[in-house]
Design a protein around this nucleic acid. Structure first.
Lengths: 147, 147
DNA sequence: CCTCCTATGTCAGCATGCAGACATAGGAGG
DNA sequence: CCTCCTATGTCTGCATGCTGACATAGGAGG
């Protein structure tokens, strides 16, 4: 077990450090969500629906950064557990607008509290102003990438 | 297709924006590495070995943020392709120190050029100073998380 | 010397995620 | 009206990643 002999070049790469923090966040979120019986993807789905009721499968997939197929599985599991509802056939196009049930809203509230605490903990080394700046910088990169 | 009616609350979450940028980076890296016959995980493995020759499977796994089992598969594929070598039995403990072959170093050089270009492109909305600050802020969070 | 304890490599089973493909619904354009 | 074209939901494999488990090597501590 070598003792971090020197700071390697990879730590000079923004992308590598970004992945490092994202992995830490994912692991920490997974740990606090597991007792609630939720995966990170399932929580993301609930959070999206809580803030934007009526989103379709495809739209949820885009916003959660997975494929339609993966999100389809997530929705089925959550629907089986009675956390959300989807119409059996589309009213307008083919999109099936999804909504949270009472139980879904309740589960979301619990999960959201835990998830936000984890996020706050992870970024606690930074001041509020630094966190805002970080978020804005990242948002600028994301906006440029999606074009 | 609704037209981004308002900026949702999720965009106020540092973790969400972080995931967004990381997903963009992963997708973009995957696209440029695919023509070289490499996955992102395989490239990460080569890059780590290029900068730290002799790392073991477990050590590589930790630094690439995957499990030993996953990294084991990556190493086998790369070894089958003759990009790296591992001793058949450990000299000292059980750890098998891995090294790049000539072909591996060559492939790494190609991939590294492409990957660094992608990274530079993604973070191009930020100035050099901003990128450095971003990297330092993220590193602070990562350091705090691993304790 | 003997006994934990940790770390490592590896195997098997399972869950997740993805690419590819298909049918279908709605709109755009001639 | 008819013809592309895009978007959506879903099905079928396939690849990847993880959990759980096991055997083994080396070191720590009595």
């Amino acid at each position: 077990m070598e003792q971090e002999e020197t700071v390697g070049d990879l730590d000079q790469s923004v992308g590598y450090v970004l992945k490092q923090v994202q992995a830490s966040l994912h692991t920490a979120m997974d740990e606090v969500l597991r007792p609630l019986g939720l995966t990170v993807a399932q929580y993301a789905c609930l959070e999206l629906l809580g803030q934007h009721p009526g989103l379709s499968n495809s739209e949820l997939a885009r916003r959660a950064f997975v494929t339609r197929q993966s999100m389809n599985l997530v929705l089925r599991r959550l629907q089986e557990r009675g956390l959300l509802t989807r119409p059996n056939h589309a009213a307008h196009g083919r999109a099936l607008p999804t909504e949270l049930t009472r139980a879904g809203q309740s589960t979301l509230r619990e999960a959201s509290v835990a998830a936000r605490a984890v996020e706050q903990q992870l970024f606690s080394p930074l001041s509020q102003a630094q966190q805002r700046r970080l978020r804005q910088d990242l948002a600028a990169c994301a906006a440029a990438a999606n074009r």
